[in-house]
Design a protein around this nucleic acid. Sequence first.
DNA 1: TCGTGACGCGAGCGATTACTCGCATACAAT
DNA 2: ATTGTATGCGAGTAATCGCTCGCGTCACGA
Lengths: 197, 197
Amino acid sequence: MRKEPRQARSREMVERIVAAGRQVLVERGYDAFSTNQVATTAGISPGSLYQYFPDKASILEIVVDRYWDEVAESVAASLADHLGEVGPQMVRQVADALISALEADRTLLGVVAEQLPLARSRERRRALERRVRELVGAYLVVRPDASTRPDPGVAAWMIVLAIENLAMRWVLDRPPIDRDVVIEEMTALVAGYLGGV
Amino acid sequence: MRKEPRQARSREMVERIVAAGRQVLVERGYDAFSTNQVATTAGISPGSLYQYFPDKASILEIVVDRYWDEVAESVAASLADHLGEVGPQMVRQVADALISALEADRTLLGVVAEQLPLARSRERRRALERRVRELVGAYLVVRPDASTRPDPGVAAWMIVLAIENLAMRWVLDRPPIDRDVVIEEMTALVAGYLGGV
DNA sequence: TCGTGACGCGAGCGATTACTCGCATACAAT
DNA sequence: ATTGTATGCGAGTAATCGCTCGCGTCACGA
């Protein structure tokens, strides 16, 4: 941030810019994400962008951060809500919540996951992964009977990265697999892994 | 390809260009992947690039295609080599091969996986995924006793995408997990999933 | 040996684009 | 009302970069 918006209209403009940034990404992709395009979409002048944002990347960053935060919040909430339930049922609920969160703005997910060249986006995504991983790890530590795996931290790492990719790819690629089926398979994957054979 | 190189020196130049492209990606990242930089690195003139390549993207494409082909070839070979072995042992071998293939040029993997904005790269990666997925799916069809999952195609999709992400992230992020351990956990993940509980 | 086309060069063109700057306007405090 | 400041404008700048084009050089076939 270059300057703090003091008056109401300027605070509103900052919001308009972020909303326009998101809109450009969704409707025209990252290639069209130029400062002039964002400004035009926001209905303001290019120069005005730089009143409150130091550069183009910082606008993008806010859009991406907010998006991943939405997803992380949704998953963390679902995890917290179903901590009491027995293993498989909990996995089902959380997987469902993750897929729903990713489906909420599938186009933006595609752009964020496949078009952005920024390392910044990866950083934020890893932050959310770490957050979820720690929740899962803590759960496994508290309930050792839920897992036969030797290291809870490793188990959490495995589960989170496996499920994350499966959910993202199912939402993005739309393979011919029913939503219920993929959730059931994810549940079986985690249950089988933790339960051993 | 714009023109077919006929003389020996021109065929050599094409190779020099591709090698330089790869080198630039590895040593300076995608941001530095400009036509002039590639030409300079290859020790040739910018204009000469366009004798045989229609545009910058086509150079990048060849570098990326070759890289993924190396990885796919390695995994497919390992799969073929260990088709006879019993479940867990086969998973171990293939996971090891995949990780080795990704470790072979970790820097390039990072650039290809995290910096390239081109959809083309994703296409190629999906082609390799499909190839491996079909091999796994065929194996599961031939040996129904190896799996308790209802749909072999779905099971193959799950396994390939889960393992792929775990291997890539382990190589790229270098989490504090031993190589042997992560392979063992991958084996347990697949075995548990296919074996049911 | 000679002629012809393949080859290679590199300055520079054209287009894009992130970002600036001087000025006009709206607002708030006194 | 007046003044100082925050806000907003948009034409313009500077730099980058993909790509071209005209020209010189080299290799090969006859």
